[in-house]
Simulated scan of single mutants.
Amino acid sequence: MTAQVRTSPGAAYDLGYHVVWCPKYRRPVLGGRVEIRLEELIRAKADEHDWEIVALEVMPDHVHLFVKPHPKNSPSQVADRFKGFTSHHLRAEFPHLRWQLPTLWSRSYLVATVGAVCARTVQRYVETQYERAAKGSGRA
């Protein structure tokens, strides 16, 4: 995958988050029509915020999402927006979800940053700034 830098006033960015969340008690309730509707809702929320969905997989007991948001949105905001929006709509449209669970989603989630460059490469780049600056200016 190649880096696709996006721009906005005052920023150039290429952020990616891997977000994973589960139904309360990790119940396998995300199948059939619920799965289809959940995917539609996730895509609608991403479109609303102009976030790019790179990959989405709904499993019966958890959701994996690779999303590229704007840098003004923190990882916790991204997870909360998806979870809150989808819970509200799914529980309204599928009453059995209200009967089976006190809340649709567990309070916890995982968010991991995803990038085109590994952490070790960035660390090495930052730590060698003075060395590269000295070589570029002709000083040793």
Rank of each mutant, 00 (worst) to 15 (best):
M1A: 12
T2E: 08
Q4E: 05
V5R: 07
G10V: 10
G10Y: 13
A12N: 08
A12L: 11
Y13H: 12
D14I: 08
D14F: 10
L15Y: 09
L15H: 01
Y17V: 03
V19K: 02
C22S: 14
C22Y: 08
P23G: 07
K24Q: 11
K24C: 08
R27S: 12
P28G: 13
P28E: 12
V29F: 01
G31A: 11
G32A: 13
R33S: 13
R33G: 13
E35N: 14
R37V: 04
R37Y: 09
L38P: 04
E40Q: 12
E40R: 10
A44H: 06
K45E: 05
A46F: 07
D47L: 06
D47Y: 03
E48W: 06
E48M: 07
D50Y: 06
E52V: 06
E52W: 07
I53Y: 02
I53P: 01
V54P: 00
A55D: 02
L56S: 10
L56M: 11
E57D: 06
E57H: 04
V58H: 07
V58I: 10
V58D: 04
P60L: 05
D61V: 04
V63N: 05
H64N: 07
H64I: 02
L65A: 09
V67H: 08
K68F: 01
K68H: 10
H70Y: 00
P71M: 06
P71E: 08
K72P: 02
P75F: 04
S76G: 05
S76K: 03
Q77A: 11
V78L: 01
V78S: 04
A79K: 01
F82N: 00
K83T: 01
G84T: 00
F85E: 00
T86A: 02
T86C: 02
S87N: 00
S87M: 00
H88V: 02
H88P: 00
L90Y: 01
A92H: 12
F94Y: 14
F94I: 09
F94P: 07
P95W: 11
H96Q: 12
R98N: 06
R98H: 02
W99T: 14
W99I: 11
Q100W: 09
P102W: 08
T103A: 14
T103R: 12
T103K: 12
W105E: 03
R107S: 08
R107P: 07
Y109L: 03
L110I: 15
V111M: 11
V111Q: 09
V114T: 15
V114R: 08
G115L: 07
A116M: 07
A116K: 15
A116V: 13
V117M: 09
V117C: 09
V117T: 15
V117Q: 11
V117P: 05
C118W: 13
C118D: 15
C118H: 15
A119I: 14
A119E: 15
R120T: 15
R120G: 15
T121M: 04
V122T: 15
Q123D: 14
Q123K: 15
R124G: 09
Y125A: 13
V126K: 12
E127Y: 08
E131W: 02
E131I: 13
R132Q: 14
R132I: 11
A133V: 12
A133R: 15
A134V: 10
A134I: 07
G136F: 08
G138S: 09
G138C: 10
R139P: 00
R139S: 06
R139G: 03
